[in-house]
Simulated scan of single mutants.
Amino acid sequence: MTGFDYDTAFARTVGWVTQPELRTLRHSRVAIAGLGGVGGSHLLVLARLGIGRFHIADFDHFELHNMNRQAGAAMSRLGQPKVEALREMALDINPELDIDTFPHGVSASNMDAFLENVDVYVDGLDFFAFRARREMFAACRRHGIPAVTVAPLGMGAALLNFDPQGMTFDQYFDLKDGLSDEELSVRFMMGLAPAMLHMGYLADPSAVDLAHQRGPSTPMACDLCAGVAGTEVLKILLQRGRVAWAPRGVHFDAYRQRLARTWRPGGNRNPLQRLLIRIARRRLRAQRAHQRAANPEVQ
């Protein structure tokens, strides 16, 4: 068994990047909050890309229902903290990684430390972690850090990048204090994927339960997200290639084999977005009424 050598381990990346660019990746620091559906995959893809420094955060442990989509989920790791498991997996790829862990997740009390000396933030928070996500994107803006979020939707991936000098996260999604979790869910979903490519093949709508913060997922979507996010991180760090910043976005759906590039000036306040959000609210009310009629004992 040979010892580890960075240049040998990542030699096959050279060609798509230059040797000087590979050195830039090696000395860059990426922060990833949330190591569940997409966050763990983000970490492993970026580690294989040659990124040399990470901050990672998650307070959760692996459970059986994580098995269908989460990098690191395995029978041998049930009950293990996600942040520890993913740290071990990343170090198994590159033992020289500088990787700091935040085992209690991210909150207002530790976000400044989490983002210290970070070059790019990659969002891996749970879909329903609205408060933490809003605080994190606001903190990225204060620190001047570009933020990348790629949502796993159906069997595809929806990308939004936030420039710290451009449109804010709250502006794009039209978020404010006092909104219900259900309203936050609707605005977040519609803002993530204005093209709604994934909605045409949802086989069982009853699996979407915003009130109880549940929704279906696929492993294909999570891995697609990691590939998209890794590419955006590369372009941002190396300052080459076109980066679409919010209110522009990209949605690719593998099931429908379709790609949509979206542009919503004003974000969710755009007239078309307002119409789509109203339609989504009506569909949600109709679905809830149908579920109550089918299960009168369930409130």
Rank of each mutant, 00 (worst) to 15 (best):
S217V: 09
G227L: 12
N268Y: 01
R256T: 14
T231Q: 13
G230D: 03
R258L: 10
L237R: 11
A229S: 06
Q257R: 13
D253E: 08
R242L: 13
W245F: 14
R240T: 05
D253T: 02
R214F: 06
T231P: 00
A221G: 04
D223E: 06
L237P: 07
T218N: 06
L224Y: 10
C222V: 13
R269D: 13
A229M: 06
L237T: 06
Q257T: 10
R240E: 01
P265N: 11
P219I: 06
Q257C: 10
C225F: 05
A244R: 15
F252V: 14
V233C: 07
R264E: 14
R248K: 15
G266Y: 00
Q257P: 01
P216C: 07
A244T: 13
T231H: 14
G227M: 10
N268P: 00
P216Q: 08
S217M: 08
A246Q: 06
A254Y: 11
V243K: 11
S217R: 04
G241I: 08
G267F: 04
K235Q: 12
P265I: 01
R242G: 02
C222R: 04
A221D: 05
A229W: 03
R214L: 11
Q257M: 15
A226V: 11
T262H: 02
P265M: 06
V243Q: 07
A260Q: 03
G249V: 03
T231M: 09
R214E: 10
H251T: 08
H251S: 13
M220E: 10
V228W: 07
Q239C: 08
W263P: 01
S217K: 03
A254M: 12
K235N: 13
D253W: 02
F252H: 13
R248H: 14
R256L: 07
R242P: 02
G266W: 00
L238F: 10
G266D: 00
R248L: 05
T218G: 04
V233L: 10
G266H: 02
G227F: 11
C225I: 02
W263D: 15
V228F: 15
G215N: 04
K235I: 08
V228C: 03
V243E: 07
L238P: 02
Q257E: 12
L237W: 12
N268H: 04
E232I: 09
G267V: 11
T218C: 04
P219A: 09
L259T: 13
A246E: 03
W245T: 01
Q239K: 15
A221R: 03
P247Y: 00
S217D: 03
Q257K: 09
P247G: 02
A226E: 07
T218F: 12
P219T: 07
R214T: 11
G241D: 11
L224I: 14
Q239N: 15
M220Q: 13
Q239A: 15
V243R: 11
R261W: 14
L259F: 12
T262G: 01
Y255G: 00
L238D: 01
V233P: 00
R242N: 08
R258H: 09
G230N: 05
A246P: 12
A244Y: 15
R214W: 06
T231R: 12
R214Q: 14
C222Q: 14
L224C: 11
G249R: 03
V250T: 14
V250I: 15
W263K: 08
T218H: 09
C222A: 13
I236Y: 02
A246G: 11
V228T: 07
R264H: 04
G249C: 02
R261H: 14
G267S: 08
A246H: 04
